[in-house]
Design a protein around this nucleic acid. Structure first.
Lengths: 368, 368
DNA sequence: TTGGCTTGAGAAAAGGTTTTCCCAAACATT
DNA sequence: AATGTTTGGGAAAACCTTTTCTCAAGCCAA
């Protein structure tokens, strides 16, 4: 099996240890001391490092037997190429950075999950950097990432109309945004909020609800207006009366309070409430119960975000619009990858569709 | 300012562009094309790369004037050393990996935040890898991290008695565990659950509560027993009656249900409930309200985890035990760093103290 | 002036891999 | 037998930085 003699006197101590281990065992050798390098493989197989490299990368020309012998040797030694050396040469680190200011990870973690999913099979790892709202911290992270030669950066914010406290223009590496778009030339992935709102309101219409209210977050959020407009559009399309959306905060407390506005007045009372997020919906449901109103019997309630930990804990479990954050992350990751690979990509916003998750807070499912 | 002529014919196109830019501007030059290398700096300063390196790293000997000139040139060109090249040489990548299976990030994100905080000032970046419960995925991530020559790994789980689906023994790099300890020789950081429980129960005692119940998670969790024992201890120390903890799930629904057990029987009714997490506490509070019992008037309720998004949304806002996850992450990060630096560290578990966050669900604060 | 010592700075190796040549040997063609 | 052509494989450069070694010049003392 061994080739011609290959200069034992050149072997270092650690190489000798590897060889010793090999002599007694035919399994891949766990190496505790130094990592196995290509030189080790080449020496063991009796070829040059150049040939060894080509054998392992399916490059160059050599007899099938030689190639296989080198491969077997590498496998046997447990050789894994040093990514740093490869990166240095290829000017490509198989590493991307995810920049976020989302402390709780409500948005960034599902996104991260999608990104990581899409990239790990390509051997790409993800640096996660939480920059809070601190420009100094942001610069620190960005510099560290650039020094480490990340192939690209994904920047995500909590809302489309606020940006990270860091400038990513003219960066030498491609940048993709998720949930923010600092300028129109940037490539950004966002969920289709209007479409999601349509999904919700149309669902309520299909269930025969006639007086559908909308309780949502503060006017300072762009998504509030996008969703509110879709809400109005769908009601108009269905010939239903439009009541103005109630704007407040993203909290349970606001949902609670909004119910008072909706049900205390002398106006006709809603038989459905479309809520701007799951926490508001939760507050609404609690307040309705306190008033003796049944959900979904008297009033149907629908949420937004499909934050499972909230949606599944409400009684009854909450029907909600899911923004498909994992899929969004996956798309963003793949697009970044193709950008890194030199494929051009059109600037602008890509809206990804939402998805309705039907539970029990709106009554019988459409086909049930 | 320019030194002697330094061989213009040797300059590449991109270098010439840099020089052109310099001629017209005295600010650091934004470089869109290729990154500035040490060679560029050396050439521009009229010295060898060796000298340039030494000047920038405060090594070697040279006139103060030479050193300063090189530094100024580097600053001017916006030179940043290529981390990959440094890593290759130093066998140190200034990179660590955080392995987790916590999908929602309830635990791992605060931890991440602490780790990142502690390390970013040392120029260390963190790979976040979510391995779910998938051994294949785990191996994939670990291999990718090792190939990229991470300096160390922090592995975190959701619970101390379950481990990640991946073997991190004999890894060539130091490993630190958070919230898990696969074997007694491993270095692990966990929160002091017993201490946290003491904090909670003692708080209730100080407030004069006499019949304190404990509603917690499933028996399969080690922390359930640790906290329950501390609960019993504190009650005994205070001469109060001990009722057996109610074990269930970690959900709101269970908190709700537990209230029925506690208040429907013919036993004397509790005037306080110590809950195993904030969601249970939330369920308990909701159930109490439905029974017309006031919180904290009739019954004091205390939670665990201090998950702000839940604790602050309950009415009244929930007093809860905080596990100091950020601090724990910071400690873990710093310890890993010292391990990487060659400092030895004793194996075993390090318990970090919890902290009580007083809101309104237990009545007047001790000093209020 | 010679020998020894300090000072300032450069050459070269190292780190691990990939890739571009290049070269011998073997084979095929007239 | 002499000339092309393929084939298998190696040498060396490149990526960028750090560090060790070396060396010439300048200085001092004798």
């Amino acid at each position: 099996m061994a080739g011609p003699h290959w200069g034992l006197k050149e072997k270092t101590f650690s190489q000798l240890r590897i060889l010793d281990a090999m002599a007694s065992d035919d399994q891949p050798v766990p190496v505790f001391s130094k990592p196995v390098t290509l030189r080790d493989v080449a020496a063991r197989a009796g070829v040059s490092v150049a040939t060894a490299s080509k054998a392992l990368n399916d490059q160059g020309r050599m007899t099938a037997k030689t190639r296989e012998r080198i491969r077997e040797t590498a496998r046997h030694l447990g050789f894994r190429p040093n990514s740093l050396a490869q990166s240095l040469l290829r000017r490509r680190s198989f590493t991307v950075g995810l920049l976020t200011n989302d402390t709780y990870g409500r948005f960034s973690l599902p996104l991260m999950s999608g990104i990581s999913d899409a990239l790990v099979d390509n051997g790409v790892s993800v640096f996660l950097c939480n920059v809070e709202e601190d420009p100094r911290l942001g610069q620190l992270h960005v510099d560290a990432m650039l020094d480490k030669r990340v192939d690209g950066i994904i920047a995500t914010g909590k809302r489309i109309d606020r940006h990270l406290p860091v400038d990513l223009g003219n960066l030498r590496v491609p940048v993709i945004y998720a949930f923010t778009q600092p300028d129109p030339d940037a490539i950004a992935f966002v969920s289709d909020d209007a479409g999601g709102a349509r999904l919700a309101v149309e669902h309520l219409c299909r269930l025969g609800r006639k007086r559908i209210a909308h309780v949502t977050g503060p006017a300072s959020f762009a998504v509030v207006h996008a969703r509110a407009q879709a809400y109005r559009d769908v009601l108009a399309e269905n010939g239903l009366p439009v009541t103005e959306p109630l704007l407040g905060s993203w909290s349970e407390a606001w949902g609670h309070e909004a119910v008072a506005h909706l049900f205390d007045g002398k106006r006709e009372r809603p038989d459905a409430v479309f809520c701007g997020n799951d926490q508001i919906a939760r507050g609404v449901i609690d307040a309705l119960r306190e008033r003796g109103l049944g959900v979904p019997g008297d009033v149907a309630v629908i949420g937004f975000d499909n934050w499972e930990i909230v949606a599944e804990a409400t009684r009854p479990p909450l029907t909600s619009v899911d923004m498909n954050l994992v899929a969004l992350g996956r798309e963003a990751g793949l697009t970044l990858l193709s950008l890194v690979g030199g494929q051009p990509a059109a600037p602008g916003i890509r809206k990804l569709p939402c998805r309705l998750v039907v539970r029990q807070s709106c009554g019988h499912p459409p086909d049930g």
